[in-house]
Design a protein around this nucleic acid. Sequence first.
DNA 1: AGTATATACAACCAATTGGTTTCATGTCAA
DNA 2: TTGACATGAAACCAATTGGTTGTATATACT
Lengths: 108, 108
Amino acid sequence: MSTSPKKHDVFQAIADPTRREILKLLAGRELAVTELAERFPISRTAVSKHLLILDEAGLVQSRKTGREKRYTLQAEPLSELEQWLSYFEQFWQNKMLRLKHLAEKKEN
Amino acid sequence: MSTSPKKHDVFQAIADPTRREILKLLAGRELAVTELAERFPISRTAVSKHLLILDEAGLVQSRKTGREKRYTLQAEPLSELEQWLSYFEQFWQNKMLRLKHLAEKKEN
DNA sequence: AGTATATACAACCAATTGGTTTCATGTCAA
DNA sequence: TTGACATGAAACCAATTGGTTGTATATACT
């Protein structure tokens, strides 16, 4: 464990549309591999591989219950993306709108 | 133009570390292909290919001046990423709140 | 005990990716 | 005009990716 050099980072993990959809499905609820696979036109094995990649990036957590392995979203690593993005925020035009939006969000 | 099905989207475009670095280099200043390539251990051609992919994703703009082609950042498409991210923000912020709660509980 | 279910693991495959080298073309500077 | 420079384009290559099928193993159901 620990210092194993992660083969996949967050940027790679979210590059694939299927994986992005998996993340959405796992947001909030916990799903087993089969339950997830039912929602896609690809095989369970393929979904399993996507889950492995998401796991390497730290974006999902799994828990074995009986013969099932149930996955949930682990959103924190996305903060790296957010941080990366924040550098570029100043360079696009809706900057003002965006800041306003954020300010309003913070007020609540 | 117009309805050409873009072969690369923003998510794919930023998946590669070299391309992310190119974007940083192009933030603010305008650089020609060769000037960019000098900053990387790979060939000019390779950098050119990365620029093509960034261009397909709409993340750079180019302008021909004489024999040079000069590129600049076009950050606006990153808003798609930001929008995508914003959906997940609640999930790590909630967790942080929860952890804070737990921490406070422990203190008592 | 015997069968069905959930997952893992391995081998394989075609397409894509990130890189290279070579050659062609356009442009600037003497 | 000749040579140097900047880029584009094509052919090629190894590694990775996203997918498959088949087999094995652990767990649950009756």
